[in-house]
């Protein structure tokens, strides 16, 4: 079953082309890495899947509906560059707000579950304005997963994390994989992407420069594709 389908997908920002007529299928239950140099269109693609932006032309569907539709938005969890947290609210309140906004049944119990998963139970009543980057990122991931979405989009989630926090996040992502969640991971870390993903797409200037969906990804092939995309970009 296909979780995300993009056809002739194009996104323009004025005269700048963010994505240039791309076709993409992401299988349900798979982990897809989206790689590419800065400005390749990785985050734009992720934001279109998340329903945060509309395509300039072409279509993007999540589980058979337009990605922008509210039912599609309910199926997708998004963990972006920024934490999306309110510094005046505590960790528990941030989670409770996300749970209420997304109409999570039994919100309080789900919040406590997510606090425990993120290892933040002891810091639950502290305002997030005083959190370290690692703590804020862990909470941000918990917020993104509050309604146990079928599809989880991660936009460079390892940025700013120390080794322990990174390992913890990898563990969490592995857990999601085992629970048949569809993961779409934007990253610059080719080795990590090859370790986590079973499909990969390398973007260059809004176009797909390389695809790999063979299951076990070969890090060296991906590295070469990534380097080629970056080199051509520099040239």
């Amino acid at each position: 079953m296909t979780a995300v389908v993009a056809r002739e997908l194009e996104k323009r920002f004025g005269s700048t082309v963010g994505l240039n007529r791309i076709d993409l299928d992401i299988q349900a239950g798979s982990t897809t890495a989206i790689l590419g140099p800065n400005g390749a269109g990785k985050s734009t693609l992720l934001r279109l899947i998340a329903g945060l932006a509309r395509p300039s032309s072409g279509t993007i569907e999540v589980s058979g509906r337009s990605a922008h539709h509210r039912i599609s938005r309910a199926r997708v969890g998004f963990i972006g560059h920024a934490t999306g947290l309110y510094p005046e609210l505590t960790a528990r309140e941030n989670l409770l707000f996300a749970a209420r906004l997304r109409s999570v049944p039994n919100a309080s119990a789900r919040v406590e579950e997510q606090l425990a998963e993120a290892g933040l139970t002891r810091a639950a009543d502290r305002r997030t304005g005083g959190f370290s980057r690692g703590m804020a990122q862990r909470l941000s991931i918990a917020v993104g997963l509050i309604d146990d979405p079928e599809i989880v989009l991660l936009d460079e989630p390892f940025t700013g994390l120390d080794r322990t926090a990174s390992d913890r996040l990898v563990e969490r992502l592995m857990g999601l994989r085992q629970n048949d969640r569809t993961l779409v991971l934007v990253s610059h870390d080719v080795t990590l992407a090859a370790k986590l993903a079973d499909a990969a797409v390398v973007l260059r200037r809004g176009k797909i420069a390389h695809r790999d969906s063979g299951g076990d990804l070969d890090p060296s092939t991906l590295e070469n594709a990534y380097t080629a995309a970056s080199d051509r970009d520099v040239a």
Partner: peptide, 22 residues
């Protein structure tokens, strides 16, 4: 403006409801 801090506005935009309620 408070929604721009940490890009919290994305959470509002992604709410699976008619955005009119937000």
């Amino acid at each position: 403006a408070i929604e721009l801090e940490n890009d919290a506005i994305e959470g509002l935009a992604r709410a699976p409801v008619d955005r009119g309620w937000v």
